[in-house]
Design a protein around this nucleic acid. Structure first.
Lengths: 246, 246
DNA sequence: CTGCCGCATCGACCCGGGTCAAACGCACGA
DNA sequence: TCGTGCGTTTGACCCGGGTCGATGCGGCAG
């Protein structure tokens, strides 16, 4: 189970729970490199089909940081329907939305072979008190996640949602061709579209020559057309670093 | 411009930027009571129709905490359509979703006569470094806002959305009869429903004898029916305090 | 009082996208 | 090699709720 560093399955150099590592730049060696965080963050592999990182309703024990792969957070309503609340990509922190309530708001499983760093709250909390930078980064992450959720919560057409999603994934995953880690079913569930609609819309994009679709491997041809369509969603912005501005 | 402390227009005892005040319990006197925060948080009145607290795209200068009234955050798309991203009620912090980007993600105006505390970032940031509790509370607030946005981002029917909204507003505003601070137009915009649909649905609730609707003054009769309807949205949870669990 | 304006209300119509059913393609294990 | 199963694709149908237009209803200024 080795991970190569291709754009489609890269190992993130950014790790919320390894802020020192982050600040020092890419050491490449992982979380525990003479920073004093050795006991804090341990590595863990998560596979699709194997168990969940945590379940909805669990009391929050740890925060996680994605280093490779892709995970999804979902809830199950009374009728048994799954509802995907978000995807986590390399660099994302997992569990932030649980901090307000103290309980996990969703179940998190991998949709692709993934690696995460685990930061037990028992150790994270006292560390936060000594390391204000960590707290700042956590607020930033939560804030970004909030902005993302707010953007996608609008009532946009299937076209707009999907265009915004493709551009977002491309920005996050980088590289030329876009290999989506999750199924169209999951995409539709996340974007509140039927699987059929996702499929039809992708086909329609292809017919307009905006993308060249394989099933999960998508090459974006006319990025500008997608951007024009997705503009109302307002998902993409430049990154500024709040902590460094301080 | 005096504020009475009725449930419909109460002054919140909780203030994000006055954490010491919050921890000591209700001192009632406002933000600046011998806590060392006198210079940090100043009070400010905001009225509907008068200017905005901040505009979308502004660089973030201050965080705000609502003490009374109601404000809304909105963006305007290319076609000039307003899109309400959230309401802020007493106890809420304003500006958290801007921290990730460093720029305001929305324009914020009052929809009812309101009072806010203003916490300039210049003073808030260094304070965060000395006051870890403040950082923790900010994460909690952001996290709660995130959970709210995620809950409402599902694809629910008009019935479900409105029921969840009524119950949420009632929980937040407290008291017996519910006086909604915002117009039905704003509610519809926020919930992604046409104004007509909001109106029709409220009427339908009234016909089923679940609520007794005046235009903005609503008495909830059959709370259980609403809860049953709104259950899938999963908006209401008990509050646990992450900081105190540490 | 009267006109105006913004909000709420009501009815008629229509469309985007959900639902259902069926077929297809591919990966994987026996 | 053949199933078996999951994900994708396609077509036909339908409905919740958006849209449009008109009317009602205070609140406020002149």
């Amino acid at each position: 189970m080795a991970f190569d560093a291709t754009p489609q399955n890269r190992i993130s150099n950014e790790c919320l729970v390894c802020p020192v590592n982050q600040c020092l730049g890419r050491s490449g060696g992982g979380c525990s490199t003479r920073t004093g965080f050795e006991t804090l963050a341990s590595r863990r592999a998560v596979m699709p089909g194997s168990g969940a990182l945590y379940h909805v309703g669990d009391s929050l024990r740890s925060l996680y940081s994605v280093r490779a792969g892709c995970l999804k957070a979902y809830t199950v309503d009374a009728e048994g329907n799954e509802r995907i609340r978000g995807f986590y990509l390399p660099g994302d922190a997992i569990g932030l939305d649980a901090i307000g309530e103290g309980r996990c708001m969703s179940t998190v499983v991998a949709v692709a072979p993934s690696q995460v760093c685990v930061a037990p709250l028992d150790e994270l909390k006292p560390l936060m008190l000594r390391q204000p930078l960590l707290a700042t980064r956590m607020i930033e992450q939560t804030s970004r996640e909030l902005a993302l959720a707010l953007s996608l919560s609008g009532d946009f057409t299937a076209d707009q949602r999907l265009a915004a999603f493709l551009l977002y994934m491309r920005q996050r995953l980088g590289g030329g061709a876009l290999r989506l880690p999750m199924s169209q079913r999951d995409i539709g569930n996340y974007l509140r579209l039927a699987t059929e609609t996702v499929c039809r819309t992708l086909k329609s994009f292809g017919r307009k020559n905006w993308i060249a679709p394989g099933e999960r491997l998508i090459r974006i041809i006319d990025e500008y057309a997608l951007q024009r369509l997705a503009a109302p969603v307002g998902l993409l912005h430049d990154h500024t670093d709040w902590a460094q501005a301080a």
